[in-house]
Design a protein around this nucleic acid. Structure first.
Ligand SMILES: [Mn+2]
Ligand SMILES: [Mn+2]
Ligand SMILES: [Zn+2]
Ligand SMILES: [Zn+2]
Lengths: 143, 143
DNA sequence: ATTCTTTTTGAGACGATTTATCAATTTCAA
DNA sequence: TTGAAATTGATAAATCGTCTCAAAAAGAAT
């Protein structure tokens, strides 16, 4: 039984619904992607170059964007970089990002979430999504 | 009495502390910047071309980044463009954004800010900046 | 299995935005 | 007034992601 059977299933279902084809590249990229928490297109490009030196960067971008449409990934724009977040196993979370080394830490804080709801209510809004990113120096980079 | 005496004061103080010089361009750009709520470097470039056709785009970028370091501005990355937000009169704030009509409401919440610090500390981070955006429907668009 | 249409791929061109380079100019303190 | 240090403007270059297009692959229909 393959490691990522369920996600592969989800991808194939999405492909079927949109007249898209199941390719060797899409299978390869999905497999690598699901092993990550977050990854950039560039990182994935270098990582997969070992398995398939001819895999193009444009294909990586196209495929990661496809995963977003299929609900398997979520693009997060951190500063200048776009990280593709693996949403297959995880619920909602926010991020701490080191501005020096790029380290990313995920966190979830119910109190903050609750206060966000309060702010929204007070202003007559109903929240659909939100985005919270804390940028700073990690313990290693502070020294 | 000049319109933006206080902010000019703040800039000059920052310059003094960092061995930077007070130039005609910096004065010109600050004056234009403080009339805006937010602006992109490109917008400012075109706007100031009337007053000084030789003002370089690189100088605009450098100067707006300087304002960020001096605490007068804050860079916000929206989509592909970077908006420089005038924080001189408003101080720090976050945003509620209506996904239907585009309405933007500014808010500030000390409790959220404090909890953000706690999260950062717990993870060994020192926050430099953060970004909090709540997306949803405003009262009018919900009906 | 073969054909045939559609989709995908890979390489590189391209566009948009921001930063780096560097000689000439300006600032400002001595 | 002088001169070291910072700044400027023009433009090259880096960055990031998308677009283009001919060749290849997928997969449905024969
Ligand atoms: Mn994440
Ligand atoms: Mn805030
Ligand atoms: Zn770090
Ligand atoms: Zn609205």
């Amino acid at each position: 039984m393959p490691k990522h059977a369920k996600e592969m299933e989800a991808l194939i279902e999405h492909l079927g619904k949109h007249q898209l084809k199941f390719t060797r590249q899409r299978e390869l990229i999905l497999d690598a992607f699901l092993k990550q928490e977050h990854i950039t297109a560039e990182e994935m490009y270098h990582q997969l170059a070992k398995k398939d030196p001819h895999l193009g960067l444009a294909t990586i971008y196209r495929t990661l964007n496809l995963f977003c449409e299929a609900g398997l990934a979520q693009a997060r724009h951190f500063g200048t970089q776009t990280q593709y977040d693996n949403t297959s196993h995880k619920g909602h979370h926010d991020h701490l990002i080191c501005t020096d080394c790029g380290k990313i830490v995920e966190f979830e804080n119910c109190d903050i979430e609750r206060l966000q709801e309060e702010v929204a209510t007070r202003n007559g809004f109903t929240i659909q999504t939100h985005r919270l990113e804390l940028y700073g120096l990690c313990s290693r980079c502070r020294h």
